[in-house]
Amino acid sequence: MSNETEKMTPDLRAFIEEWKDKPGNLIMVLHKVQQTYGYIPREIAIETSELLKVPLAKIYGVVTFYNFFKLQKAGKYIIQVCLGTACYLRGGDDLIKEFERQLGVGVNTTTSDGLFSIEAVRCLGCCGLAPVAVVNGDVHGKLEAKDVAGIIEKYRTLG
């Protein structure tokens, strides 16, 4: 996706130093990587593997096992549509379809302008507000398909 090369930030380097000798540090370090870049960039994974003395293959294995870790940079606005049971029963899958239709991309892909990506997530824990979609931490509850256009518009104007 992105061609720019990410550089390891001093903050991340310090974090790795701090965790280097703790057993079972890999997942905590990967969380920090993703928190820093929004995904796990290949070049950072290579550097992390050297610093932690963990084979790159193992890092790849862990990253691909867990849903939370991403290998590709996501859009500026990440639309997470809840597909927990309560949201599903109240129309969560219709919401996803509507987002996909309006943005012209599928789940786990990013729009060509780099603005939006759609994710289906399992239970955000706001079942009382079902169905729910979260955009960069903002919760939109009790949604219907007709609300989708307004949400997209809101973030598009923000740019």
């Binding site: 997942i27 096992f65 939370f68």
Partner: peptide
Amino acid sequence: LRFGAGAF
């Protein structure tokens, strides 16, 4: 604390 990463 140790964080999970989304695996049921």
